[in-house]
């Protein structure tokens, strides 16, 4: 999600001028730092939610006054009912239908209770691979009816089934892509369909996808103008450049990995040769009579 910050999220925040921001899924704190910078500059408040962040999040939090944030080491579903309604919610937590749909509805219910429109929601992972496929950080946390059959296998674009050599094979991914109640984007669409109020929804379909969900009651001409600017030819060309940079970066990592693999393969070949030599010699020695 951090790759969207400067070009998309920060301008949205600047226009919307939120007094309270919710971040679900802080991870290492990269976006948290940006959020807290904004809060510090504008006197806003942030609620940071992540039950299992990387240690660097605490380093980030320490750099800012606790006047501007509260950190909740809990699951979003447990925290949201305890929070005041944010103006903007950034969602990058557990990427499955049940969690995202619950998060959106809990935010909605909180807002309703406060007599406010639901927050603007900026959600990561509305494109492949988790737009139409659930992923569970801890499958045991969900009821059986809340999850699809899953496996710790990876994914490849365009292939419905999981594959051993695919991406994110270290996570519990739903066996199949698509269908009802599957994936982050599906959850957002289902929420929109059932919420009973009007929304504007926009999707930037790269870097795993960024969804921007704006309740009609929070839409302003300035916000609309900004959103429209995301989809101009110039802006999309900039996106192409960013994607190309990312691609080149990944190719560099691939080249580095191939270098390592080549060295390791050569080393193992040498090791095999050593072992074969030793094995032959041992066999010869064992044939010699014992004196």
């Amino acid at each position: 999600m951090n790759r969207f910050w400067h070009r998309y999220i920060r301008p949205l925040i600047d226009i919307a001028q939120p007094s309270r921001i919710l971040e679900i899924g802080a991870d290492s704190g990269w976006n948290t730092r940006n959020i807290l910078e904004y809060c510090q500059a504008k006197g806003a408040q942030a609620d940071i939610v992540d039950p299992a962040p990387r240690p660097s999040l605490h380093e980030v939090l320490k750099q800012y006054s606790a006047d501007h944030y509260r950190y909740y080491p809990l699951k979003s579903i447990a925290v949201i009912p305890q929070l005041l309604t944010p103006d903007i919610a950034l969602i990058d937590g557990d990427h499955n239908w049940a969690t995202v749909y619950s998060e959106l509805n809990l935010l909605h219910a909180n807002a309703e209770a406060a007599g406010l429109p639901p927050p603007i929601v900026i959600s990561h992972d509305v494109a492949w691979p988790y737009a139409r496929r659930d992923m569970y950080y801890n499958p045991d946390d969900l009821e059986a009816s809340q999850k699809h059959p899953y496996a710790y296998r990876g994914m490849l674009p365009g292939i419905n089934e999981l594959v051993e050599q695919g991406m994110n094979g270290i996570l519990a991914n739903a066996l199949h892509e698509g269908g009802p109640r599957n994936g982050v984007l599906t959850a957002i669409e289902d929420y929109i369909a059932s919420a009973g109020i009007d929304f504007h929804f926009y999707k930037l379909p790269f870097f795993n996808g960024l969804g921007v969900l704006i309740p009609a009651a929070r839409m302003t001409p300035a916000l609309q103008q900004l959103i429209d600017s995301f989809f101009t030819a110039e802006s999309l060309l900039d996106a192409c450049i960013a994607i190309e940079n990312d691609s080149m970066h990944l190719r560099a990592i691939l080249a580095q990995t191939e270098t390592c693999l080549s060295r390791r393969t050569e080393a193992l070949e040498r090791a095999r040769s050593v072992i074969e030599t030793l094995s032959r010699r041992i066999a010869e020695l064992e044939k010699q009579p014992v004196h």
């Binding site: 899924g25 299992a52 080491p73 990058d92 937590g93 990427h95």
Partner: peptide
């Protein structure tokens, strides 16, 4: 992204 378990801090 959130991780399933909070890592050790030291």
């Amino acid at each position: 992204m959130m991780k399933a378990l909070r890592p050790s801090t030291q």
